[in-house]
């Protein structure tokens, strides 16, 4: 299972847990399974079946560009992080 690192401000949805093992072959499945265990977190990450514009995801140290369709490996480490604000 992939290890998901929970951002600090979303730990209120996970009883303070900062990392959790979650099954799923894609970000969509990972978030869905995360939401099953921690209701409320899905709305913080997903909107209209896509990552919210304010959310970015890193898988195994690489910024993922495929949104919810991004593949997640069995031993992947997944970080949800703020999309860089203020433009580039």
């Amino acid at each position: 299972m992939a290890t998901v690192i929970i951002p600090a401000l979303l730990r209120k949805f996970t009883d303070g847990i900062d990392r959790v093992d979650v099954a799923g072959g894609t970000i969509r499945e990972v978030v869905r399974n995360l939401g099953t265990r921690f209701p409320g977190i899905i709305d913080q990450l997903i909107e209209h079946d896509e990552l919210k514009p304010s959310v970015a995801v890193s898988i195994d140290g690489e910024m993922a560009t495929g949104g919810v369709l991004e593949r997640v490996g069995e031993d992947s480490e997944v970080h949800f992080i703020p999309a860089i604000g203020g433009g580039t």
Partner: peptide
């Protein structure tokens, strides 16, 4: 809204 404070923090 929309300062680069998030990026600054990171």
């Amino acid at each position: 809204p929309g300062s680069p404070v998030g990026a600054g923090a990171m």
